[in-house]
Design a protein around this nucleic acid. Structure first.
Lengths: 361, 361
DNA sequence: CTGTCGCGGGAGAGCGCTGTCCCACCGCTG
DNA sequence: CAGCGGTGGGACAGCGCTCTCCCGCGACAG
């Protein structure tokens, strides 16, 4: 008895401390259920067979003490966190240098996040949001990942030369991109068939009987912009319009306005416009109105993205729709699979666009 | 030697394992710097004075081994995670039952998150996004919080009867709401002076010489909707228009259309409309156009929110602006303070609205 | 010159969990 | 009936970190 290092008092103490010390632990459950911590852990995680009647007892004990696993402790040993980082770049205010940035208020981001959530929630994984505008931001992402602060990253960028994919691949971090990366990096991605989207717009405009068609492109160093334009031009050519006057914008409303003004100046007659995103399409409409032209009576306008701003404008903007939510869900699914099996090959999934016809065409 | 369970090889192994075993740990840094783990920890956290020259040595060691603290281990002992949950409810698709829900694609959420980020980033706290539509979702939030998965919650809800604030207060979790809670719960919040916003709209319309003014309100169980309307009505009364015909909508575009149709039917003459948010204002404009009325020549329209859909529509929507980003930043700041000092009193910060005049008035 | 205090460093005990190793037991086969 | 594989539970060693306790040492007052 005196040799016993743990006197009886300790046991009493322990059973009293059942829950006094804050959140109940595995230990507490084990004591109540009359089994070992390991068994409780097994029941919680379903990792190994446990006799049904013992499972019953353990579950009851869990319920009575109100046990919730401590994720920090768990991830300390499993090296898994159940969180992924959603990295958004190109979201900060544009007006700094008039470059390709899009405001974070762009509904696009909301839709993307919503889509990811659909795939993440059922797997009990939560997204943590991080911006990657500055070098410091990027370091934060990298270290969050190498910290074991998150298991992987979902990249949504609007830049063409984002260094992050490169960095992540080099660090061997699981990651998936939205849209094909501009530089060649071995990273999974989802994308829409941008060429097909451009072709859809061309076919629609020609079918509507338009003959004097122009285009407003995005910056040509962005693969998506390049593909939308060439898909559009190729389909126009196929339908007998080998030459489409084109001006480049940078995906902003303002650039849509000025691109349209340029086109109006250089072309004698215009009866249709294809813009590589909705914001620019809206800008183009503004410029057309200023020029005394009516949409769609005089000029048809087709955008790209099927964004809510387009849908809500009057008349509603005809637009090429990319299934953003589904694409984002797929991204999340690919990431989760990659996390589960890191040796998985890099994959990409391409979605087909559709055209949503509204009032402007 | 045979009795020695751990032969000398193990030691070599250990010094070789300096970094072989994955991420470098405090231990590794300590060995390189020739100090104890505790001292390295002190340098990293700046918790206690450490001799400058030792700090120097430790920092150098950290740099050479490329040490990054493991957050799981840290939070296991500190019971802090450096993450807060952003709970969004009322974001899921509306069309289920036509209720008050707003699509997650609403730029509003993006702006809110962006504002939060501004306050969170400098303090090295990351937001994790969670939806709270179903009971299961709410449980997830609660358990994430009691798990120690996050330190607090930022609530952005568009429902009037969200049970979550109640639950969080009861669980003693730090949390801050966007907009005053509908039910009386002792929780900090930020809000805009909705009454003043309504008054601003009234003053503007009367100053424009409008005399036959109507209003489209939000659901009156939402405090914000109530305040906007009564602020508007009171100011109208003060300026000689004691009676303002009013129809309730539910903050959606469609409800704006039908509310306006109702008003058009019941009022002989209308030359101005105040809608309690921009979506409904846009809907009202649609209905006015269908009725052959021009905006702003025949009817002035003022919305509320200064959302991007309003800003981008043609003509631009005049709207009462709430400084969403600043409000969200303030929310985050309050939450961070509450986490730092849990005994802090419940506080609320009210922001002043402004009116942004565009083409519709 | 000694007592005392404060400063700065080390040692060590966990935080709550998982996973490996081990062992008891059961039912089977030879 | 001994031997054997398989099943299911317990013990225990950490995961990487913080923090409390302790101790040595120099400065300073008595």
């Amino acid at each position: 008895m005196p040799a016993d290092e743990q006197p009886g008092a300790l046991l009493d103490d322990a059973s009293a401390a059942n829950r006094s010390g804050g959140a109940p632990t595995l230990e507490d459950v084990a004591r109540v259920a009359g089994v070992s911590r390991a068994t409780v852990s097994r029941v919680v995680n379903g990792k190994r067979r446990v006799a049904p009647e013992i499972q019953e007892v353990v579950r009851a004990a869990i319920a009575t003490v109100g046990y919730v696993p401590n994720l920090a402790a768990r991830s300390l040993v499993t090296r898994r966190t159940g969180a992924v980082i959603v990295v958004v770049s190109g979201a900060e205010e544009a007006h700094a240098d008039g470059s390709t940035t899009i405001d974070f208020a762009d509904p696009f981001f909301g839709r993307v996040v919503g889509g990811m959530l659909r795939a993440l929630r059922p797997r009990d994984v939560d997204p943590v949001l991080m911006l990657a505008e500055t070098e410091a931001d990027r370091q934060r992402v990298i270290s969050a990942l190498s910290n074991g602060n998150a298991d992987g990253a979902l990249l949504v960028s609007t830049h063409s030369e984002d260094p992050l994919p490169e960095l992540l691949v080099r660090a061997g971090m699981p990651a998936v991109q939205f849209a094909r990366p501009a530089q060649q990096v071995p990273m999974s991605y989802v994308d829409v068939a941008n060429r097909d989207g451009g072709a859809l717009a061309a076919a629609h405009l020609v079918d509507r009987g338009r003959r004097h068609v122009v285009a407003i492109s995005g910056p040509l160093d962005v693969p998506a912009a390049r593909d939308r334009l060439s898909g559009f031009q190729d389909e126009m050519a196929r339908r007998g319009h080998p030459w489409v006057p084109t001006v480049n914008g940078n995906f902003t409303y303002a650039s849509g306005v000025s691109a349209m003004q340029d086109l109006l100046q250089q072309e004698a007659k215009i009866d249709a416009v294809f813009a590589s995103n909705d914001l620019m399409a809206l800008g183009a409409i503004e410029a057309l109105h200023d020029h005394g032209l009516r949409v769609p009576q005089d000029v048809s306008v087709v955008g790209f993205d099927d964004s809510s701003v387009g849908a809500l404008s009057r008349p509603g903007l005809t637009s090429v729709r990319q299934p953003i939510e589904e694409m984002a869900s797929e991204m999340a699914r690919i990431l989760l699979d990659t996390i589960a099996d890191p040796d998985r090959r890099v994959t990409s999934v391409i979605f087909e666009p559709t055209i949503v016809v509204r009032g402007t065409s």
